Amino acid sequence: MKTDTKERIIGYIKQKNEVTANELAGFLGISAPALYKQLNKLIEDKVLSKSGKPPKVFYYLTPNVTEQAPGLLDQKLANFINENYLFVSPVGSLLEGVEGFNYWCGQNNLSVEKTVEEYEKTLQKYLSLKHGGLLDGRKKIQDTFKEVFLDEIYYLDFYSIERFGKTKLGALLLYAKQSQNKMLIRKIAELVRDKIVQLIKEKKIDAIGFVPPTAQRRVQLQKELEKMLMLNLPVINLVKATGEVAVQQKSLSKLEDRVENARRTIFVDDNRVYKNILLLDDAVGSGATLNETAKKIKDKKMCTGKVIGLALVGSFKGFDVISGV
C-alpha cells in the first residue's frame, strides 16, 4: 500500500525531530510548491509547527498541549476571550483568543472551564476602571511630581494584570519592540487607532508628538506607528539626544534620575504654535518623560491650550517602572 505524502512528511520528521523544507524536498522528491502546500495544511491542522524566517525555517511536530474541545466554552465567554486574550508561545507563535488561552491553560495544567471564569472576573475588574475606553492617570501623576506640566494624561490599557500576566496590548507591545516586527506593530495600530482618533476629536487636538525612543533599533515602533496610524495631524519634532552611553528610562529606579534623564535627553526641535497638543508614548512608567516633554513645549510657548499625554500601556500600581518595554 502506497503511503501518502502527508504520512511520509510526519514519519520523516518523527525520525529527524526537526527539518528544513530543503531536506523534506530531497527526501520526498517533489516540487517546492507541492511541498509547501502540504506543510501549510499540516501547520493549519496544528500537526506541525515551524520556527525561524526564510531562508532558515525549521519544521517539527507540534507538542501535545491539552486543548478545550470545541463547544464546551460558553459562547459569551468564548467571545470575551477572543476579544481580549493573546499569548505568545515560547517559540514565538502568536496565539490569539481561545486558541491562546487553551494553550496557556494546557502549559500550566489548568482547567480551561474554571480558569476562563477567573480570567473574565479578573479582567472585568480592570476594565471597570476605564472611562470612555481610557484609564485616567491624572491623580497618580499629581501625587508623583511636585510640578505637573501635563494638563491631562491617559493610557489605553494596563501592561499586565494579576495572575494572567500581560494584557493583549501589553504582549503585542513587548514583542513588537523586541522583535522589531512590523506585522505586530500593525496589529497594535489597528487595535488602538479608533481610541486615539476618538480622543483627538473629544479633546480637539491640533498637533501630535511621538515620544522618541532611547534604544536604537532598525525598526522603531514609534516611527512605524506614526506612519500606520495615519492621523492627519501636524507632527511636532521631538528629538532624543543621548550622551556617550544611551541610558533608558526603564533602567533607572529612582524618580529623580528618571526626571533628570528626561530633562536632559528629550528636546523639542519645533517652534510652531498650536492650541491643544497630544503627546503619544508607548508605555508609561514614572510619567517623567511625558511630563518633562510637556514642560519644554510650554516653555517654548508652543501651546495655548492643553498638553495631553497618552500612553499605550501603563502599570496598575501607579506609574511603576515597566521593565519589559
Rank of each mutant, 00 (worst) to 15 (best):
E7Q: 11
V19A: 12
F27S: 03
L28S: 09
A32T: 08
Y36P: 01
Q38D: 04
D45S: 14
L48H: 11
L48A: 12
S49F: 03
G52Y: 11
P54S: 06
P55Y: 08
V57C: 01
V57H: 02
V57T: 08
Y59L: 09
L61F: 02
L61Y: 03
T66K: 14
E67G: 09
F87D: 00
V88C: 07
P90A: 02
S93N: 12
L94W: 13
N102H: 10
L110K: 15
L110D: 02
V116L: 08
V116H: 10
E117C: 11
E118Q: 14
E120R: 15
L123M: 03
L127T: 03
S128F: 10
H131I: 00
G132I: 01
K139S: 12
K139R: 12
I141K: 12
T144C: 02
F145P: 04
F145Q: 00
E147S: 09
F164G: 04
F164V: 10
T167A: 02
K168H: 05
L169W: 07
K177C: 03
K177M: 03
S179N: 15
S179W: 12
K182R: 15
K187W: 12
I188V: 06
I188D: 04
L191R: 15
R193K: 15
I196V: 15
K201D: 13
I205G: 08
Q216H: 01
K227A: 06
M230N: 15
L233Y: 11
I236K: 06
T242F: 02
A246Y: 01
V247R: 11
S253I: 10
R258H: 09
N261T: 04
D269V: 10
D269Y: 07
R272G: 14
V273L: 09
L280H: 10
A283L: 13
S286F: 05
L290E: 05
A294P: 06
I297R: 01
K298V: 06
K298A: 07
D299E: 15
D299I: 08
K300A: 09
K301R: 14
M302K: 01
L310V: 12
L312K: 08
K317R: 13
S323E: 13
S323D: 13
G324F: 12
